[in-house]
Simulated scan of single mutants.
Amino acid sequence: MPDLVRREDFDGWVQLTLNRPDKLNSLNVAMFEQLRQHCLALAGETGIGCVVLRGAGQCFSAGHDLGGIAEGETPPSRGWHSETLRMLEKLPIPVVAAVHGHCYTGALEVALAADFIIASETARFGDTHAKFALTPVWGMSARLPRRVGIATAKRLMFTAQMFGAAEAVRIGLAEYLIEEAEFETEIARLAGQIAAQSHFSHAANKRLLDRSDAQPMDAALQREWMDGEGRGPDMHERIAAFQTKSS
């Protein structure tokens, strides 16, 4: 089987590329199966400080393969796609979705499972479930309002409107916009910066943030000091390196 999700390893970080460029990286069961296998592998690895998820060719992904939907594709189990994206989301490693070109509907659900999104100036987003008389089952109704707010999520889902990178940044869907000519350079710079920080802290902080999401403030604060994992095994080494550099 071809590499529908291609893995590349760099200095402390990994790039996963959705790899059906001839089909605009449209998402099918086989692609999700490979994404799932990569998630399983990464969850058990050490030494990886960042994962970048992106698309090959012209875009991130045009969304769920409508041909597969029409043909009645059968996932291995009910909720399997959603479960796979939760596996991506719960990796003990920061995950960044780097979006260029199309990122529609199912593809947006995939990108939302990343910790955050960065967007090339060419990026185009939208949720078109309502256009095709569909409802989300991969996480849109749970993740989109957490990212942009309930009213904005409703507007995007009800109108099925397309919008560009600048609007994605304005509403908080994407963190920042990158000129297309700088996209590759910025991906490597950002991934390297994240990977250079403590991997212990990344894993612990992701767990804290996941537990406290949408909790009342007092409960979230209590969980932070009660369940926080404190000092990592590389703390002394990092402090010593900083002091040596500063002196």
Rank of each mutant, 00 (worst) to 15 (best):
R86I: 04
R86W: 10
M87S: 13
M87N: 10
E89W: 01
K90M: 14
P92N: 08
P92K: 01
P92M: 05
I93D: 03
P94M: 10
V96E: 09
A98P: 04
A98W: 00
V99H: 04
V99R: 00
H100R: 15
H100L: 10
H100I: 06
C103A: 05
Y104L: 12
T105I: 03
G106F: 05
A107C: 06
A107E: 01
A107H: 06
E109G: 14
V110Q: 03
V110M: 14
V110N: 02
A111G: 04
L112A: 00
A113Y: 00
A113N: 03
D115G: 12
F116Q: 07
F116R: 05
I117Q: 02
I118Q: 07
A119G: 06
E121N: 10
R124N: 13
F125L: 04
F125G: 00
G126T: 09
D127H: 08
A130S: 11
A130Y: 07
F132W: 14
A133G: 11
A133W: 09
A133C: 12
A133T: 10
T135K: 13
P136Q: 06
V137Q: 11
G139D: 03
M140T: 15
S141D: 15
A142Q: 13
R143P: 00
P145T: 02
P145M: 02
R147T: 15
G149D: 09
I150S: 14
I150F: 12
A151T: 12
A151I: 04
A153T: 03
K154L: 14
K154E: 15
K154M: 14
L156Q: 08
L156Y: 07
L156H: 07
F158Q: 12
Q161T: 12
G164C: 09
A165E: 07
A166N: 10
E167M: 09
E167W: 02
A168W: 02
V169H: 07
V169Q: 13
V169P: 08
R170T: 14
I171G: 06
G172A: 07
G172L: 04
G172N: 07
